[in-house]
């Protein structure tokens, strides 16, 4: 169950359109390390997570990623709002425009459509949490790459907020991994999969 809140987690007020940057920032909507993939990753992984702290963190970070997707989408919307056909041609937005006009559609900067193959839900807490920590770092790198291309402070400001959240999420997933490992056989973390090998006494049920 989710309840919509009619505000952005961090405000976006962009007064100058920029279709070229919109095409780049779009990757954080529907690209390989984008917010949509992040949200779907965590919200999919949480069902088989046997530790309540980590189920909580996957639910709450997965939910925050939906709010981040809305921030990125608002940036793209405002960067492409009311573009003229001349601007669309001049800034190379024509290839996107022909299929979607000025509508929002999840794709990577290079045009590859969003796909579930951008993330994994492996059903093994150690494997999933390593993926989650890597995902936060990959998203952080992408925001760093975007920030090198952005000159306008109106765009850079919300991007910096999103970048900072990746760092915090990485920290929380690191703690989550520690919680999982504390519940396992300290001599061999891989002795059993606590989400599958239920015959083992993992003390977590």
């Amino acid at each position: 169950m989710w309840i919509y809140e009619k505000r952005l987690q961090y405000p976006v007020k962009i007064t100058q359109t920029n279709p070229k940057l919109a095409q780049v920032i779009m990757s954080q909507f529907g690209g390989p390390d984008g917010e949509l993939a992040a949200s779907m990753r965590y919200l999919s992984q949480r069902y088989t997570m046997p530790y309540k702290e980590v189920t909580g963190i996957l639910t709450d970070i997965g939910t925050e990623e939906l709010a981040h997707m809305e921030i990125v989408s608002s940036i793209i919307y405002q960067l492409t709002k009311d573009l003229s056909i001349e601007e669309i041609e001049k800034y190379g937005f024509d290839k996107y425009y022909v299929d979607h006009t000025l509508g929002l559609w999840p794709q990577a900067a290079g045009g590859t459509p969003f796909t579930a193959t951008y993330f994994q839900s492996k059903g093994d807490p150690i494997t999933d949490l390593h993926e989650d920590m890597a995902a936060e770092q990959k998203a952080r790198t992408t925001y760093d790459n975007i920030l090198r291309l952005v000159k306008d402070p109106e765009i850079a400001d919300p991007i910096r907020f999103l970048r900072a959240r990746e760092v915090v999420h990485y920290q929380r997933f690191g703690e989550s991994l520690r919680i999982v490992q504390d519940n396992l056989d300290s001599k061999n973390f891989y002795a059993f999969n606590p989400a599958f090998d239920t015959k083992s006494d993992c003390g977590c049920k």
Partner: peptide, 23 residues
């Protein structure tokens, strides 16, 4: 008022994640 909502809501968002791993 909206700015105040954003500020206090963010404090809630952030500490909520911290409490998940430090209940």
């Amino acid at each position: 008022l909206l700015n105040r909502i954003n500020v206090v809501s963010f404090a809630v968002d952030d500490v909520k994640l911290f409490l998940d791993t430090h209940p």
